[in-house]
Design a protein around this nucleic acid. Structure first.
Length: 861
RNA sequence: GCCGGGAUGGCGGAACUGGUAGACGCGCCAGACUCAAAAUCUGGUUCAGGCAACUGAGUGGGGGUUCGAUUCCCUUUCCCGGCACCA
């Protein structure tokens, strides 16, 4: 038997064995229980990063575990291949995005193969290929027919110098990333998908997803943000219009002292026509990006429009202000302001000296006036005339009724969720299949002309969409009237591509339809695994898209993902340098050297190449844009795939964030070497004898108990808890126990052999190469992945004695061994007789004794 | 700003249902092997006091519930993810 562990040779051999035996090919088998295990597919950014390795190792462990439990397991892989980075790479390298993307795919596929994932590569797909994105276009047209897709205007970031739309990521501190120009908001026509039509179902179905983490369901529920409240009309003074607002706090209506509208609100625009100062303020509000985080943290500013509205119940005149904290996208783009009971209104009122009127008091006690901050809790109405003395629900009901009588209000449900804008003024995406005809208007491309193919040889230059400058693409004829027309040059959001790829894996070779009967066999996905950063958008869009496909009759499921595992991010330090132009250049941690003082305290960081100082931007998710990824290739090259896999699984549990550090890899490698030595030592002892259960020593019984406890522990950790780190720790403990047995007796030899065989089976999902190799070495034919998962022997698990903890007043004071079936009285008297315990009981009376069976005795004095 | 999550030895983490805090690993210390080093093996390793038995403190900070709290409740600080055009 080879004495040295040689991962490179073993891994190559085992991988070619899988290939020769076609072990990873999966077909639909109605007689077998299916298990669809899916990891979020990667964006082909260039090479794998640690997040990918973590994600796909988790998926592979689960897939192989389920396969060993007899399931027909599908684990596919594909490429989320459209997107912005390809355009950026194209600009800097002068290579078309398609070339760059396909090269990256080829390289990353090699890396995935080297890691030994049990993927059925026959099902590989890439979203940038026409046979995939054709069906984006096809379904978009179906949604258009059903009124689920529509056109309206949307607000985008506009770079006034490059004359181009910017992604949020391309806006840095309110300025364009390439030009440094202050970004403006601009309204442009866009296509939307009516996800709000499914808001109730998307919310209600969250309760039917017990296999999803609670936190993800909570985040989605809050994102959808269903609230019930009252829509209130404020008649505009001197005009025949009503200003509508929505509020969840109608109980505070009598405390409204002004009304605030968003800068984009029609009333603000009208008022600005005769007031240059107001027009200038509205223009100022147009400066800056559209991101909500920016809007919500900016300084609260406003200006009086000079207009007034009547309070709908009292008729009192209230001023109308334009305020930058009111979002046009939520509700009506206008709010009634109640400074006493809303913190933002309170701050705004203080700043602009607007009145503050308290109309709610706590159920018990009084508010101390003047207020130093808004009191936002529910309470009892005061200073509210006929509505005084009501609780929250009573006040809302009474006020809503009063408003309804005047036809100035009604109860209504409001969602925070907005429709999904899918238009992108970008080249590297799926073309929206529409044609603009002077005579016929917007005309859908007929199904027979799909796909609308994206030209693959363009190189963007940063100033607008290259498709819009490419006559070969946009010149076309109208399908209705046959006259010359212009093709839509916007492409689709890449979230469209990723909203249904899991369906296409089931039947990717089907060219007559988007899906076929095979998706009925595989769907829904039994286990979906991906980064927590996708908890809202991608997962919500996929759920929506699934429901649309169901309603079109393509599939018969309500939800795409039965169980969800959200892995934490892999984080690493970010290093950067800011150029004089304000442009930020990021450096990979591998290029950086940390400087320390004599005590080992960190004092700074320099670039290895030239020794110049470099700034740290803290730690953040490993990303292409921050250039802080660690290349897993070096890990694979020096230690092999099994070490890389073991290390990733052992370092931290999957749902937690993982801060990268190079230490620990050696430990994983050392463990595999110990496993190798344990196996070769056991094999060298020769053929294993049969175990004689009648003559076992206490030590041998303990060793066998450890073996069979470990089976149960690892089964639970891999299959239910997904705590791969504790599963590995349990196997390490087992090997520690077994290697302390010396093999000279027949029974010890038998136990070592049994322990080795079970160790290999338990570790097989995590380190499939070394376990396959050793499986054959101990005399088995064929694939360990097709061997059945071991079951623990009840007989071996039995114990005669257990250890109990003795506490005095909750503090540990001793330990006793008792028979498993000892009664409470026996346990109590043994506990009280314990030497150390007796010292504490002297001169004290025992108040009570708590016995927790199987665990402890607590004596209270 | 809003929504969600997190914080445990020198480090990564364990403690699953309120019941022994620190499993397992890294690092470090000591020893064995070696001419020496690497590798490997053995032992030790939360902090403070003590020769030891043992005692005290201890799970970001403050408070509470409980016989008993890393775990539940309130509050606070810091860190991470998301915020609709990064994917």
């Amino acid at each position: 038997m080879e004495t040295r562990y040689n991962p490179r040779q073993i891994e190559t051999e085992v991988q070619s064995l899988w290939q020769q035996t076609n072990a990873l090919k999966v077909t639909e088998d109605p007689d077998k229980e299916k298990f669809y295990c899916l990891c979020m597919f990667p964006y082909p950014s260039g090479k794998l990063h640690m997040g990918h390795v973590r994600n796909y190792t988790i998926g592979d462990v689960i897939s192989r575990y389920q396969r060993m439990h007899g399931k027909n397991v599908l684990q596919p892989m594909g490429w989320d291949a459209f997107g912005l980075p390809a355009e950026n790479a194209a600009m800097s390298n002068n290579v078309p995005p398609s070339r760059w993307t396909l090269d990256n795919i080829a390289y990353m596929k090699k890396q995935l193969l080297a890691l030994g994932f049990a993927i059925d590569w026959d099902r590989e797909l890439a979203t940038c290929l026409p046979d995939y994105y054709k069906w984006n276009q096809w379904l978009f047209l179906r949604m258009l027919e059903k009124g689920l897709a529509y056109q309206t205007t949307g607000t985008v970031n506009w770079d006034p110098i490059d004359q181009t739309v910017l992604a949020n990521e391309q806006v840095i501190d309110g300025r364009g990333w390439r030009t440094g120009a202050v970004v403006e908001k601009r309204e442009i026509p866009m296509y939307y998908l009516r996800i709000t039509a499914y808001a109730d179902e998307l919310l209600d179905c969250l309760d039917k997803l017990p296999g999803w983490p609670e936190r993800v369901r909570t985040m989605q529920a809050n994102w959808i943000g269903r609230s019930t409240g009252v829509e209130i009309g404020f008649p505009v003074v001197g005009r025949d219009t009503i200003l509508k607002v929505f509020t969840t706090r109608a109980d505070t209506l009598m405390g409204a002292t002004y009304v605030a509208v968003a800068a984009e609100h029609p009333l603000a625009k009208q008022a600005a026509e005769r007031q240059p100062a107001l027009a200038a303020f509205i223009e100022e509000c147009r400066q800056g990006a559209v991101m909500e985080a920016d809007l919500a943290t900016q300084e609260k500013k406003g200006m009086d429009t000079g207009l007034f509205v009547h309070h709908p119940l009292t008729g009192e005149k209230l001023p109308v202000w334009v305020a930058n904290y009111v979002l046009m996208a939520y509700g009506e783009g206008a709010v009634m302001a109640v400074p006493a009971h809303d913190q933002r209104d309170f701050e705004f009122a203080l700043r602009y000296k607007l009145p503050i009127k308290t109309v709610i008091r706590p159920v018990t006690g009084e508010l101390l006036e003047p207020l130093t901050e808004a009191w936002t809790e529910y309470g009892i109405t005061i200073h509210s005339g006929e509505f005084n003395g009501l609780d929250f629900a009573g006040a809302v009901e009474a006020i809503a009724t009063a408003l309804a009588q005047k036809q100035l209000g009604k109860k209504r449900t409001q969602y925070r969720l907005r429709d999904w804008g899918i238009s992108r003024q970008r080249y590297w995406g799926c073309p929206i299949p529409l044609i603009h005809c002077e005579h016929c208007g917007v005309v859908p491309v007929p199904d027979t002309q799909l796909p609308v193919k994206l030209p693959e040889d363009l190189v963007p230059d940063g100033s607008g969409n290259p498709l819009a400058k490419n006559p070969a693409f946009y010149q076309c004829t109208c399908p209705k009237c046959g006259k010359p027309a212009r093709r839509e040059t916007d492409t689709m959001d890449t979230f469209v591509d990723s909203s249904w790829y899991y369906l296409r894996f089931c039947n990717k070779d089907q060219d007559a339809g988007m899906v076929d009967a095979r998706s009925k066999y595989w769907m829904p996905v039994d286990q979906y695994i991906g980064g927590i950063e996708h908890a809202i958008l991608h997962l919500l869009y996929s759920r929506f898209w699934t429901k649309v496909m169901r309603d079109i009759g393509l599939i018969n499921i309500d939800e795409p993902f039965s169980n969800l595992l959200t892995q934490g991010m892999v984080l690493n330090e970010i290093f950067f340098r800011k150029a004089d132009t304000g442009r930020i250049q990021y450096f990979n941690p591998a290029e950086v050297e940390i400087k320390r003082d004599e005590a080992g305290q960190r004092i700074g960081a320099v670039l290895k190449a030239d020794g110049t100082a470099i700034e740290s931007g803290g730690i953040g998710t490993m990303s292409k844009s921050k250039n802080n990824g660690v290349d897993p290739q070096s890990l694979i090259d020096s230690y092999g795939a099994d070490t890389a896999r073991l290390f990733m699984m052992f370092t931290s549990p999957p749902e937690q964030t993982l801060e990268w550090s190079d230490s620990g890899v050696e430990g994983a490698y050392r463990f595999l070497k110990r496993l190798w030595k344990f196996a070769t030592d056991t094999i060298d002892m020769g053929k294993a004898p049969a175990l004689d259960k009648t003559t076992l020593t206490e030590e041998q019984r303990a060793a066998r108990r450890k073996i069979h406890e470990t089976i149960a522990k690892v089964d639970d950790d891999l299959g239910r808890r997904f705590t791969f780190n504790t599963a590995i720790a349990a196997v390490m403990e087992l090997i520690n126990t077994l290697t302390r047995l010396d093999g000279t007796s027949t029974n010890n030899h038998a136990i070592l052999h049994e322990g080795l065989e079970i160790t290999l089976l338990l570790l097989c999902p995590i380190v499939p190469h070394i376990t396959q190799n050793l499986w054959q070495a101990i005399g088995h034919e064929g694939l360990i992945m097709d061997a059945h998962w071991p079951t623990s022997d009840e007989e071996a698990l039995k114990r005669n004695e257990i250890e109990l903890i003795i506490q005095v007043n909750g503090k540990l004071r001793g330990k006793i061994n008792v028979a498993v079936d000892a009664d409470e009285a026996t346990i109590k008297s043994l506990a009280m007789a314990n030497d150390n315990v007796v010292r504490y009981l002297e001169n004290n009376t025992v108040k009570k004794v708590i016995v927790v069976p199987g665990r402890l005795v607590n004596i209270v004095i």
